[in-house]
C-alpha cells in the first residue's frame, strides 16, 4: 500500500475536507465553546470518579491502621508476656498511624517523603486529563 502513488482525486477530497474543518473550527464560536464544554465535562467526570475511589479508601485505611497496631501489640504481649502494655501502646500507635493513613489518603499530608507540592502537582495533573473518557 505505501508504494502506491496517492490518488489525486482522493487528495483533492482530503484538502477540501480539511478546509471545511478549519473553517468550522475558526468560524463559528460555537464549535470552540462546545469543545471547551466537552473538556470541562470530561474533567468533572474524572474528578467525581477519583472522588468515589477516594471515599472507598478512607474507611478501610483507618480500620487497617488500628487493626495492624492492635495485632502487633497483641503479638508482643503474647511473646514477651508484657500484657497489657504492648496492646495499650501499640493500639495507640496504630490509632496514630490510622489517622496518618486517612490524612494521606485525603491528600492533607504529603505521601511519605514527597513534599506537599508534588502531591498537589500530581492531583492537578490527574484532574486535567481523563485517560478513560
Amino acid at each position: 500500500m505505501p508504494d502506491q502513488p496517492p490518488d489525486p482525486s482522493n487528495d483533492e477530497d482530503l484538502s477540501k475536507r480539511l478546509e471545511r474543518l478549519r473553517s468550522n473550527l475558526d468560524g463559528p464560536e460555537g464549535m470552540v465553546a462546545e469543545a471547551q464544554r466537552d473538556e470541562q465535562l470530561r474533567a468533572e467526570r474524572a474528578h467525581s470518579k477519583a472522588g468515589i475511589a477516594q471515599a472507598f479508601r478512607l474507611s478501610s485505611e483507618f480500620i487497617a491502621g488500628v487493626v495492624v497496631g492492635g495485632g502487633i501489640g497483641y503479638a508482643i504481649d503474647k511473646y514477651f508476656e508484657t500484657s497489657p502494655w504492648g496492646l495499650i501502646i501499640f493500639l495507640l500507635l496504630g490509632f496514630a498511624a490510622a489517622v496518618l493513613n486517612v490524612l494521606r489518603a485525603s491528600g492533607m499530608v504529603a505521601e511519605s517523603e514527597m513534599s506537599l507540592k508534588t502531591v498537589q502537582d500530581h492531583q492537578n495533573r490527574s484532574d486535567k486529563q481523563d485517560p478513560n473518557a
Binding site: 472507598f56 479508601r57 478501610s60 485505611e61 480500620i63 487497617a64 491502621g65 487493626v67 495492624v68 497496631g69 502487633i72 501499640f90 500507635l93 496504630g94 496514630a96 498511624a97 490510622a98 496518618l100 493513613n101 494521606r104 511519605s112
Partner: peptide
C-alpha cells in the same frame, strides 16, 4: 518511625480488605 512502620504494614491489609469487603 513506629507509626510509619505500622502505617506501611497496614497497606496490604487495607488493600485486600477493601476489595474483599466491598
Amino acid at each position: 518511625v513506629l507509626i510509619e512502620v505500622i502505617s506501611f504494614l497496614s497497606r496490604p491489609i487495607s488493600l485486600s480488605v477493601r476489595l474483599f469487603a466491598n
